Computed example of a mutant assay.
Amino acid sequence: MKVRFALTALLFLFPAQVGWAQQLIVRSGEHGSFSRLVIPYPQGTVWKVDQGPEGIVLAPEGTTFQYDVAEVFRFIPKGRITAVRTQVGTSDLIIETSGTVHPKSFQLLEWGRRA
Results as ranks from 00 to 15, higher is better:
residue 13 L to E: 14
residue 53 P to Y: 11
residue 97 T to W: 04
residue 18 V to W: 09
residue 50 D to C: 05
residue 52 G to P: 10
residue 80 R to L: 11
residue 79 G to E: 15
residue 96 E to Y: 04
residue 16 A to W: 03
residue 113 R to V: 08
residue 40 P to C: 05
residue 32 G to F: 04
residue 102 H to F: 03
residue 78 K to Q: 14
residue 12 F to V: 01
residue 113 R to Q: 05
residue 104 K to F: 05
residue 94 I to F: 08
residue 14 F to S: 12
residue 66 Q to H: 03
residue 60 P to W: 10
residue 49 V to Q: 02
residue 112 G to M: 10
residue 22 Q to M: 00
residue 98 S to H: 05
residue 114 R to N: 03
residue 49 V to C: 05
residue 91 S to E: 00
residue 26 V to H: 04
residue 29 G to P: 08
residue 88 V to N: 11
residue 47 W to N: 11
residue 30 E to K: 08
residue 18 V to K: 03
residue 19 G to Q: 02
residue 74 R to F: 01
residue 82 T to P: 07
residue 13 L to P: 08
residue 19 G to F: 01
residue 10 L to R: 14
residue 105 S to T: 07
residue 6 A to R: 12
residue 115 A to M: 02
residue 101 V to F: 11
residue 98 S to T: 08
residue 72 V to N: 04
residue 37 L to D: 12
residue 26 V to I: 10
residue 90 T to L: 01
residue 30 E to V: 10
residue 8 T to S: 14
residue 85 R to V: 15
residue 73 F to M: 04
residue 91 S to A: 00
residue 32 G to W: 07
residue 36 R to A: 15
residue 65 F to Y: 13
residue 61 E to M: 06
residue 14 F to P: 13
residue 34 F to I: 01
residue 83 A to F: 09
residue 23 Q to M: 00
residue 43 Q to G: 06
residue 58 L to R: 02
residue 96 E to G: 06
residue 35 S to V: 01
residue 50 D to W: 09
residue 80 R to V: 11
residue 100 T to V: 05
residue 115 A to T: 02
residue 2 K to P: 03
residue 30 E to S: 13
residue 20 W to N: 14
residue 60 P to N: 06
residue 64 T to V: 04
residue 24 L to M: 14
residue 72 V to C: 06
residue 107 Q to N: 08
residue 86 T to D: 05
residue 35 S to L: 03
residue 29 G to F: 09
residue 19 G to E: 04
residue 61 E to F: 04
residue 101 V to C: 07
residue 115 A to C: 01
residue 33 S to K: 01
residue 56 I to A: 15
